[in-house]
Each structure stands twice: as structure tokens, then as C-alpha cells.
């Protein structure tokens, strides 16, 4: 079978704040024989919370412009961000099904000599990993299983919701993301607020950071009640930012200290596949940079040489 390649939609947070995710996904996709192609000149998806709340037509037009870049090359898009997925997948769906919207958007795109044709699909990394590579192949690549490591999950919202539209997983009892994370060998630890939003989305983090952080604290407290965990895994860099950098912000605004390693699922897999944390710069996460700390390697079962 020919190697499956995707246009890699970077978005904003992965390339500009959590570049370790960008590097990790390159390692993981390469290990699984899937291609990632640069998407030259892609912009913000645009942020579904702010742009979708401001003006739906502008939101759909800018998203459509990004989609046309992939259409021109004839490959599907993959993104590792629930927010970007929300904009690109939703816009692609709406433009394919709503003729009136498509007409307005294409009139706008004509200004820059582009046209939405509706010829490609949008995939989350999670879809590409589960549906193209497959869990069996992923399990075979795991050379460093996370033995005796307690793992909590934060699946986030926009990959699986709205469930009737996305048709990815049962959003009340999801299992696909969990099964993907469990290939790492870590022990899945359920907690009450697992499916609750991190608090960042819908332009809330921008509007009122303290309200956004209250969501995050509720989740962390819920993890504590479940007996605590060694790491939390998410498929979204905006959630990752909220949960990782958020720990530093919670300390500042609420004087409460939480210390938990937050990994994007492709960072988890990169480690499980035997890559060293330095190969993709796990230690560059913003909580470590600001706290002058390092990941709790020992808890994660990873031996690192002191540099």
C-alpha cells in the first residue's frame, strides 16, 4: 500500500508555544510510515471561539482559505489541535452541506483567487493514528512501555463533540482516545471530571483567565480525589497549555500548587516508541521553563542522564 501522507496543519499553539509537539509528531508519524507535508502559508484556523463568536462568515472564509491549500495538493489535512480541528473539520463539513454558506464564502475567496471545492477530508492526529496506522501497529512500535505509571486523560471537547455531527466516539463514554493512550502501557486512571472542558475554549481564557483556571482546578482536584496520577495526556495543545502553563497561573492567581506532567498524546507515543525526551524537547513545556523545573522523570519511569 502506498504511504499515506497528510498536509500538516500546525495552527498557532503547537509551532509557536509547544514546538515539542511538532517535533514529536514528526518522529511518531515517521515511525509509523505516515507522511507529513508542509502546508505553506497556512494561517490561524481561525480560533473557533473568538472568530466563530464574532462573525461566522469570516470564520468560515478564513478556514476555507486554509482548506484550499490542501485541496490544491490533493492530500487530506491532519492537525493535532482540537481547536484547529473544530474550525477546519466543522467549516469543511458546513461548506460541503450548506450551499448558501458555500456561495458566500466562495465569493469572498474570489478576492484572492481561491475557491473551496470540497475535495478533501480533515483528520485529527488521533484519527490518523487509530484509523490509518492502527492500534496493533502502534503497540508493536512500543519499546519503552510506561510500566506502573498512573495516567489520567483529558480528551478535551472538539474532537468528539458535537457527537451527532462528528460521529467519532460516544462523548459520554468515549473509548478511542483511551485505547490509543493505553498502547503506551500506562495504567488508565479514571476520575470524575475527565470529560469536563479544560476551561480555555470558547474565548473564555482570553475573556477571563481566572474563570478559565477554575475549570482547570476543578479537574486537578478531581484527579486528586481519584488517588492522583503521574501524568495527564491530552490530544490538544490549547488544553495542554491551559493544563501545563495553567499550573503556574493557578499558583499566581489562587496560591494553590499543583505539579503534574502534561503530555500531548504524540509526546507520550514518542517516548513509548523509545525516543529520548531530548529528541523532541519535552523539557521545553512552559511549566518547566517558568518554574525552572523538569518533568518528574522517575515517576514517568524514564532514566535521563544529568546534563
Amino acid at each position: 500500500m502506498a504511504k499515506k501522507s497528510f498536509y500538516h496543519f500546525l495552527g498557532c499553539i503547537i509551532p509557536h508555544r509547544y514546538p515539542s509537539v511538532e517535533k514529536a509528531v514528526k518522529l511518531v508519524f515517521n515511525d509509523l510510515d505516515m507522511g507529513l507535508l508542509d502546508m505553506d502559508g497556512a494561517t490561524c484556523c481561525p480560533a473557533p471561539g473568538v472568530f466563530g463568536s464574532f462573525d461566522r462568515i469570516t470564520w468560515a472564509t478564513i478556514a476555507a482559505r486554509n482548506l484550499t491549500i490542501a485541496e490544491a495538493g490533493g492530500h487530506p489535512i491532519t492537525t493535532g489541535c482540537n481547536g484547529c480541528f473544530a474550525s477546519l473539520w466543522d467549516a469543511n463539513y458546513e461548506l460541503k452541506h450548506d450551499e448558501e454558506l458555500r456561495e458566500i464564502v466562495n465569493e469572498n475567496l474570489a478576492e484572492i483567487d481561491r475557491e473551496f471545492k470540497g475535495t478533501i477530508e480533515v483528520w485529527h492526529y488521533v484519527d490518523a493514528l487509530v484509523e490509518v496506522a492502527g492500534l496493533d501497529k502502534i503497540r508493536k512500535k512500543v519499546t519503552r512501555p510506561f510500566k506502573d505509571v498512573r495516567m489520567v486523560l483529558h480528551p478535551g471537547c472538539h474532537w468528539m463533540r458535537p457527537k451527532l455531527l462528528k460521529q467519532k466516539d460516544d462523548s459520554e463514554r468515549p473509548h478511542i482516545f483511551r485505547e490509543l493512550c493505553e498502547t503506551s502501557g500506562a495504567e488508565y486512571v479514571p476520575y470524575k471530571d475527565e470529560l469536563m472542558c479544560c476551561g480555555a475554549g470558547g474565548a473564555v481564557r482570553t475573556a477571563d483567565i481566572k474563570v478559565a483556571l477554575e475549570f482547570t482546578m476543578q479537574k486537578f482536584e478531581s484527579v486528586k480525589e481519584a488517588g492522583g496520577a503521574d501524568m495527564m495526556i491530552t490530544p490538544c495543545p490549547f488544553c495542554e497549555l491551559q493544563l501545563d502553563l495553567g499550573q503556574v497561573e493557578i499558583q499566581k492567581h489562587f496560591e494553590k500548587e499543583y505539579v503534574l506532567d502534561i503530555l500531548h498524546v504524540v509526546e507520550l507515543l514518542a517516548l513509548a516508541f523509545g525516543h529520548e525526551p531530548d529528541e523532541f524537547g519535552l523539557a521545553t513545556h512552559l511549566q518547566y521553563q517558568l518554574r525552572k523545573s523538569t518533568p518528574l522523570w522517575e515517576k514517568l519511569g524514564i532514566k535521563v542522564e544529568e546534563s
Binding site: 500546525l10 508555544r17 514546538p19 511538532e22 502546508m39 502559508g41 497556512a42 523532541f280 521545553t284
Partner: peptide
């Protein structure tokens, strides 16, 4: 930070291509 993780300093998005902006 990008250089530290071993990727190009400027990603191939609108940060690199001003025509996109």
C-alpha cells in the same frame, strides 16, 4: 524554543509567508 527542540526557527505558516497575511 523551536531551535531547542530541533526544528526550523520559523515554521512554514503565515509566520514565514507574509503573502498569507
Amino acid at each position: 524554543l523551536r531551535e531547542k527542540v530541533g526544528i526550523e526557527r520559523i515554521p512554514p505558516n503565515a509566520s514565514k509567508y507574509s503573502e498569507a497575511i
